[in-house]
Structure formats: C-alpha cells, structure tokens
Write a protein that binds this DNA or RNA. Sequence first.
DNA 1: CGTTGCGTTGAGAGGCTTCAACCTAGGTGG
DNA 2: CCACCTAGGTTGAAGCCTCTCAACGCAACG
Lengths: 246, 246
Amino acid sequence: MTQISLSPSPLVRKMEGFGSLSEVDRSVLENLGTSTETVPAHSDLVREDERPRGILLVLEGMAFRYKMRANGSRQIMAYLVPGDMGDLDVGLLDRMDHGIGTFSACKVAWIRSDALASIRENHPEVARAIRMSTLVDEATLREWLLNVGCRVAIERLAHLFSELLLRLQVVGLASENSYTLPISQGELADTTGMSAVHVNRSLMELRRRGLIQFSGKTLSILDVPALKALAEFKPNYLHLGERRAA
Amino acid sequence: MTQISLSPSPLVRKMEGFGSLSEVDRSVLENLGTSTETVPAHSDLVREDERPRGILLVLEGMAFRYKMRANGSRQIMAYLVPGDMGDLDVGLLDRMDHGIGTFSACKVAWIRSDALASIRENHPEVARAIRMSTLVDEATLREWLLNVGCRVAIERLAHLFSELLLRLQVVGLASENSYTLPISQGELADTTGMSAVHVNRSLMELRRRGLIQFSGKTLSILDVPALKALAEFKPNYLHLGERRAA
DNA sequence: CGTTGCGTTGAGAGGCTTCAACCTAGGTGG
DNA sequence: CCACCTAGGTTGAAGCCTCTCAACGCAACG
C-alpha cells in the first residue's frame, strides 16, 4: 500500500527540484521514510569508528556530521535538515570516519541498501535525483571549506544563515526570511571554526547592523539581500532547479 | 586490445586497495587512461560555471579543485594526484560549481560516461572500488574542513604533508619519507586558509624542529612519526586496505 | 531553590595578516 | 654570453582579528 500525503514530504520537495518525478516516483520516496525512529536532542545517531548501520534519512529535526579532536575540540562538517540523507554507499565502509549527532529531537529513518538497489533498477528518475543530491552535499562541503578558509567571522555566519534559508525554503521549512534554528552559539562556533565568545560578538554585530534577529530558536533575517551580499552568497553550488538538458 | 603494463598504474594501485581485482578488472582500469591529454602547469582543466565535459582522471602530475572569491582570494579544496578521478556523476550537473587547475604539468584522461556505465554493468568489483574511492574523496574533504577549522598553522601543514605522504605511497609515488611536491608557498596558503607569509614562517618552524626538509620541489619528512603526532594524523578517513566483510 | 546550560561582557594575550622591502634563481631577449 | 626580468622565498614591523580566561546574568528544570 503506497502512502500519498497531501502535502509532500521534505524529501519529495527536495528531489523534485532535481528532476520531474511521476506520481509513482513520489510515493516511492515517501515510503522510504516509513519505519521511523525518534531520537532526542543532543544525542548520537552514528558514532565515529562504529560500523555503518544503514543509510540515514532525516525526516524532522536537525542533525549534523562532526569529528572530534583529541583535545576535545569539535568540527561540525555538515548540517542535515529534513530531506537530507547520509552517504548512499556508506555500507562499503568498514568503519565510520565521522559521527552524526542531533541538534534538536529528530525523526529519522534507516534505509536498507536493498531498498536503494530496487530504486536504482525500477525508478531511474528517483535514482538520478538522489545521486544529484549527493553531488550537492559534496559541493556544500566544499563551500563550507571556502567559508572557513577565506571568510572572516561575520561573513561566515552570514553565509551559513543564507545557505540554510535557501535549503530550508526548498523543503518548505522556512518562510521568506525566517526559520527555526535550534542551535546554540557554541555549536555555531564548532561549525564555523571560531570560539563561542567570538560567535557571540559577531552575532551582536549582525544584530547591530540590522541584518538578523535571533532570539530563542528562531532566526529572522531582517535584510535578506544585505545578508547575502555580506556573505558573498552565490547559490550555484546548491544546484537548485537544474535539470540537465541531456 | 587490452593493455597490460608490468608495473601497475597509479589508478590500479589505488583501486586494488579497495578490493581484490581480477586480471580483467585491472586491464579495464588501465584502459580508462588510454586517450590522454597533456596540460601545462598553472592552467585550468575545468573552469567554474562551465558545462562539465566528462569525468577527469589524473594520470601524471598534480592538480587541484578550487574556488575564487570576488576579492581575488582563492580556496583550494582538494589535491588530485595520479589515480584520482573527478566526480562520477558530474554529468548530471548543468554547470561546474568549482574549477580544477594544475600545479604541475599533467597527463589526464577524460572518461566518457558510457564507459563508466559499461563498467557498472560488467565489472561490479571495479565499480565498487570506484564508488569507494568517491567516499574517500568526500571524507578527505571533511578532514580538510577540520584541518582549517580546528588546527593552528603548523599543524595544518603537518597534516597536509602527512596525508600526501600516505596517498602518494599508495600509488607508488612516494618513498618511505619523501615525495615530489610541485607547489609554491602561496598555493599552500590557499590550501590551508592562511597567508603566504605565515606559510613561510610555519615551514621554517617545521624545518627548525627538524621535521621536514623542503627545497626545490622535493619534500622530505625527517621524522615521520613526529610529524604525524604534531598533526594528530589519524588516517582512518582514507580507508586504506579496508575490505568490507559483507 | 539550587543547579545547569547558555548568552553576555571585559580584559589581556597571541596568532596571523598586511604591507613592504630584499634576495635568489631561472628564463628571456639583446 | 650577459643583462634584465619575473616569480617565489625570506624577513621585519605594525596592527588587528580572534582566542582564552574569567565573571556574571538569566531562564529552564529538577
């Protein structure tokens, strides 16, 4: 029995940006998130050095990939928002080389690799969209490296906020200029390669300039064009709405 | 006519680390690099915003992925050494979101996507190894993000040098403790997110500590364990010699 | 009502950057 | 064959961005 919801799930919304899907395609995607699991905030979905257990799909909440150093410092290397998946081929690996943790409580599904194999065979358009989203994940990682390597503190935050605005809009979780960001300043620090104190000061500078408002867990961008300009945000790497001619 | 060389190519050496290949498998890989092209140093193999032209395979020389900022600063996001390939599914994209340039003169091949499709069908073990090497590329990118986000200058360089030692040893291009590194200090700066001046000072500090010798284009690591310790180098993300039980 | 996590603020220190000059080596042209 | 030229390496000095340490306030929670 295929499940068809009236409002499409984040996964479907995202994948539809990467190709035109049939009704069947959409229901295939909806059913990937059938057997779910709910995980509290600030817990580990996957630990480093563990054996991979399947392909993660985030349905609700916000999670992140990370790595720890021996001295206790942490680098967050990706945000996983609803509709985002882990690596398709992660089963090929013996051990995880990084962990995945939750910012907020998350509803997730573990996709079995035979389910994916069946998609590859029977639903090529879905498989194509999934491969494309993997490319985007990698491109995002490259952009994050540029962010930490080339931009100063205030620009890093501006870029992160601009990227999340777009990504969350795609899956229907952001309004025109605001979204829920269940993340502490310390976590922003581990994301952007700076100290928590300096994140605080940079956030205040963004507020002082009238660019954002960030109280509680809601981020409102008061001047979207200005924030994007400050970040020098060029969204091409997200490859939104691209449908290759060939 | 399949070509079988006595000493395996870097590509074969690398892929053999990811699974046991048959004689046929090896010759399939060797033949991927059949129609080659030679490109001078300091030129572009691929430019940002260009349409992708195929899957790049580096046979000789050293290349890099990069992105530019409007102010002229550059972030290098990956090194491509012999045996490294570009993204398999890059053909799905409309436009490149980054460029690829050469450090030194390079011999490269452009793999057509139908050649890969044929591999996927007829040589599953090869396809598996290639997918695994893609996973490693992504893991390396994550490690680079940690490098720039968490480590201080001298550690960043130590980590980069340690990683390259291992990667070049795998493809038979490094001795136990040295290899050819055709890279200027300015390029190291764009790699590690620091200024060229500070790269210079950090290199001198590494020399002063008796850890490296870097004259001309040859890098010699005088104390490999010490350099790895300084970098806190944990090579698990390269997934060398892993062969998944299943 | 104490505890705890998180945001805020101050002060001092240090890593890194920028600007600038100088040097060396390798390549080019006269 | 040598003068010139250019790219890259080296060095000094000044300053700023960011870090660390530390204290304090506040709200949520048991």
